[in-house]
Nucleic acid binder design. Structure first.
Length: 619
DNA sequence: GTAGGGTTAG
């Protein structure tokens, strides 16, 4: 074959690239011919072949070895060839142990090579890939350097370049810069992608109100860029994160009016929005209309029930999902395990745990944290500790530490809880305790009656960590003082608090004063509760218990009389226990359980044992 | 004569 005929052969096949791109044998033939004939050094031919090699390795997205070799054989790659390589590397995986060349870092290295050795400038097609690589590597400095180059090259009005630039800034956490880029794109140039990138950038930066402001602005001022599905998904996400139901409803109306197709992603966003706003009925309604529900969609609803403290429903829905053949992933599992923990369903939680181990579901940190929390809440502190200690020190996040500290505290192991907190602080500042961590620490102090330590940690929290105490922290301290019979101090502490005390605080004081026989203070606290919750029976019942323990029976009687006069009904106290995966519920004076006789027999037997040990149980 | 962006939901 002569050079010319080889050239014609190559070109005709290259032009027919739909055939070639599916057949590597064809491709290899063309490549050999082009090299043998010297046609490979034609810039058009080499870049076209490079593109073909990339589309052939497309099924194996991270194996860019062959295209890279091919690229390195091009003596003077044109901008097309460079851009093909930028594109491939900017999308490739960051961590591939087997092939270290597949990473966005390669994109940047190649760019540097292009500038230094070949003295070529990037063009409008290069920038989106280069910005993508910077974003994925959090290389904001490189991104800024490229930003200045766009001015030099007069690309400040190229909407592709500008959109990629603004996404890069928000990805790197520089929301302010992103906003500046956005503002500088003229309205006539801005498209729906510009708006979506800005909204999504605000969400990434956790500025949900700003996200909705941008969305609102888009609806009002830009007739050229109508919201698309991505816009609505982003806006719904923002509503979900801040629980903004009114706006969420408005978006729901908008998507119905504009006849958007409710696919699984838009549907899930809507379910999530309603669920996060506590509207479980609406969430369920939307959920039922979504075709081809996937695991994310189910998890939104499962998590929604848990968010609304409907743990039983959350676990039941998980079972239903499995029955429908949808495979759970780590997010689902973390959520269900947490529901098991909150409802005390240890057997179910344990079942989920083993089920995951057997079915090879990846245990990410959220799952492990949920397991620590569940086992602690269900009293299996050894299991919780085992999982916690198996976690590498550098892997533990604030939730792992907090779950374990709180778990130890609620299981009466206050010293261990406080020890663990010291370990957390000594772990080199990798993880900073948050408000919830300190709740665990304070409750450990409260359970062990460590008054001074409790106040020490309270000050430590505000002074060393600059954390603002919430009402729950004040509640812990009131509890701490109350349990230690420092009732006057507790009262003083409440009146000096910078926040208005809530019923929990007064209930805590009522309980403490009752158990230490200070009826006057108990009455005072009950009054405060009644002022805050006039319709509820809590204060009446607690106070009548106080009277009863002081044998003031006429007061007990009056208490109940006034309750019936005010038509306040006492909700029956309820407790539950899980045995062999079944949750058994008991109400006060309940005789509905099928094994009631043997249950009461056991209680009487236990009481006898307790009395024989010299205790006088209060029944 | 080749090519470009926002992957958006738990």
């Amino acid at each position: 074959m002569t050079c010319n005929s080889a050239g014609r052969f190559c070109l005709s096949l290259i032009e027919n690239d739909r055939v070639v791109s599916k057949n590597s044998k064809h491709f290899n033939q063309i490549l050999s011919h082009s090299i043998a004939s010297g046609l490979f050094q034609d810039p058009f031919v080499s870049s076209k072949l490079l593109l073909l090699s990339l589309s052939l390795s497309h099924s194996n997205a991270n194996n860019l070895h062959f295209p890279h070799t091919l690229f390195s054989q091009i003596q003077n790659p044109n901008i097309f060839a460079w851009n093909f390589m930028f594109k491939a590397y900017s999308h490739s995986n960051t961590n591939t142990n087997t092939n270290t060349t597949s990473s966005p870092q390669q994109c940047i290295s190649l760019y540097n090579l292009m500038r230094r050795r070949f003295e070529l400038f990037p063009d409008r097609h290069s920038f989106p890939f280069l910005f993508k690589a910077c974003a994925r590597l959090s290389l904001s400095h490189k991104g800024q350097e490229l930003h200045s180059l766009t001015f030099k090259l007069g690309l400040q009005h190229d909407v592709f370049v500008q959109n990629a630039l603004l996404s890069m800034y928000s990805f790197c956490g520089l929301l302010h810069n992103a906003r500046q880029v956005f503002d500088e794109i003229p309205l006539s140039v801005r498209d729906v992608v510009s708006w979506n990138s800005m909204v999504s950038g605000c969400i990434q930066g956790r500025c949900y109100w700003d996200a909705l402001k941008v969305f609102d602005e888009m609806l009002k001022c830009d007739v050229n860029a109508r919201p698309d599905e991505v816009t609505l998904i982003n806006a719904l996400t923002a509503c979900a994160r801040i629980g903004f139901l009114d706006m969420g409803r408005k978006i729901h109306g908008l998507l119905v009016r504009n006849e958007f197709v409710l696919d699984v992603i838009l549907g899930s966003s809507l379910v999530d929005m309603y669920a996060k706003c506590g509207q479980m009925e609406n969430a369920r309604k939307v959920f039922d209309t979504i075709p081809d529900k996937n695991v994310v969609c189910w998890t939104c609803l499962i998590a929604g029930y848990a968010h609304s403290h409907l743990f039983k429903e959350s676990i039941e829905l998980f079972r239903e999902m499995q029955a429908r053949g949808v495979t759970a992933d780590a997010a689902t599992i973390a959520c269900v395990i947490s529901s098991c923990g909150h409802s005390g369903a240890l057997d179910q939680g344990r079942w989920v745990h083993t089920h995951c181990e057997r079915s090879g579901i990846h245990f990410n940190l959220s799952v492990k944290n949920a397991l620590i929390d569940m086992y602690s809440k269900c009293g299996d502190i050894q299991r919780a500790l085992k999982i916690f200690h198996a976690l590498n020190l550098t892997k533990r996040d604030v939730f792992s530490w907090t779950a374990m500290i709180t778990g130890l505290a609620m299981n009466g192991q206050s010293d261990e809880a406080l020890n663990l907190f010291s370990q957390m602080e000594m772990s080199g500042g990798i993880v900073r305790p948050n408000e919830v961590t300190f709740l665990g620490v304070l409750s450990a102090c409260s359970h062990a009656g460590l008054v001074d330590k409790g106040f020490h940690y309270f000050n430590h929290m505000t002074q060393s960590y600059n954390l603002k105490p919430r009402i729950e922290h004040y509640g812990c301290l009131v509890d701490l003082l109350g349990r230690a019979n420092l009732l006057a101090e507790a009262e003083r502490f409440i009146s000096a608090m910078p926040i208005q005390p809530d019923v929990v605080i007064w209930r805590s004081l009522l309980f403490a004063s009752g158990s230490h026989g200070n009826i006057e203070l108990a009455e005072f606290s009950a009054k405060r509760i009644e002022e805050l919750e006039p319709k509820k029976c809590g204060a009446h019942v607690l106070l009548s218990n106080v009277y009863a323990s002081a044998s003031r029976w006429s007061d007990v009687k009056n208490m109940w009389k006034s309750m019936s006069l005010q038509r306040i009904q006492k909700l029956p106290g309820c407790s539950f226990i899980e045995i062999d995966g079944v949750v058994h519920e008991f109400f006060v004076a309940d005789d509905l359980h099928c094994q009631m006789d043997s249950i009461y027999e056991t209680i009487i037997r236990i009481n006898k044992v307790i009395q024989a040990e010299g205790f006088d149980p209060e029944i």
